[in-house]
């Protein structure tokens, strides 16, 4: 079953059921623990939800050809972001890193060569995510890459709902007849990339392309988006997908 089909099968209301089912069914202890930690109910107000910003850097965008190079996580809630409680891992991809992506990531060959395989840190990563609602900027990377990597190493699926700050931004800048009209007539659409989105909320520019820094940047962006477009009482189920 493809991840897309899996996603379709599990509508939002059944995420809790899926987690409970997986907690029973999985044989891998780390995955069992991850699922057993459960999820907040979809009607939980956002202000009460423990969140975890997650960012990967990968060797490319194709989940079948490319691999994860680094992982950053930063826990937060609507009041406070705690980078000091976050984690950062560099992992060695199964395929060698090409020059272009090294320049892009500022991670050196030596760092990668010394790094462990994802399998060695996977338990820690899953433990960090457990019990949190995951927040990413663009849901097409972290979830599918993690799912594929876990499947390859542990033979089981790793799926969970995510709040996607890019989707939230898309809804805001591209919603409404006026913006759609502008979109029709102007050559360039408003950018919803992380750095550009942040600018709209007065957030400072960071030197990007470091997984933990990007996770922090994503957490800041979500706080800003909620402050501007939603309420702390908004049910989490309205935002995750």
């Amino acid at each position: 079953m493809s991840p897309a089909a899996a996603h379709q099968q599990r509508s939002e209301s059944t995420w809790a059921a899926f987690f409970a089912d997986q907690a029973d069914r999985c044989r891998d202890p780390a995955l069992r623990a991850f699922y057993a930690a459960g999820l907040p109910a979809p009607d939980t107000p956002l202000q009460d939800v423990p969140l975890m910003a997650l960012d990967f850097e990968t060797t490319g965008l194709d989940v079948h050809r490319h691999a994860i190079v680094s992982i950053g996580v930063v826990p937060f809630d609507l009041k406070r972001i705690r980078p000091s409680a976050g984690r950062y891992w560099v992992v060695r991809p199964p395929r060698p890193l090409d020059e272009a992506s090294i320049r892009f990531h500022r991670i050196t060959h030596a760092e990668v060569a010394r790094a462990p395989d994802l399998d060695e840190v996977l338990d820690e990563v899953l433990a960090a995510l457990a019990g949190h609602v995951v927040v990413v900027h663009y849901r097409g990377i972290e979830r599918p890459f993690l799912d594929a990597a876990v499947l390859a190493r542990r033979g089981e699926r790793c799926l969970f709902p995510v709040i996607d700050t890019m989707r939230i931004e898309a809804r805001q800048v591209r919603a409404g007849w006026w913006n759609r009209l502008k979109g029709l007539f102007s050559a360039r659409r408003t950018s919803i990339r992380l750095a550009d989105s942040r600018t709209r909320y007065g957030l400072p520019g960071y030197s990007a392309h470091h997984a933990k820094l990007d996770a922090l940047a994503t957490a800041e962006l979500l706080q800003a988006q909620i402050a501007r477009h939603y309420r702390p009482e908004t049910p989490v189920g309205e935002l995750w997908e």
Binding site: F76, K79, R80, I81, R82, P83, S84, Y201, G202, L203, L216, A219, E220, Q223, A224, A227, R228
Partner: peptide
């Protein structure tokens, strides 16, 4: 720096 937390506040809050 290693102990610093972060928080965002909207204009007017």
């Amino acid at each position: 720096a290693a102990r610093t937390d972060v928080a965002y506040y909207r204009e007017g809050s």
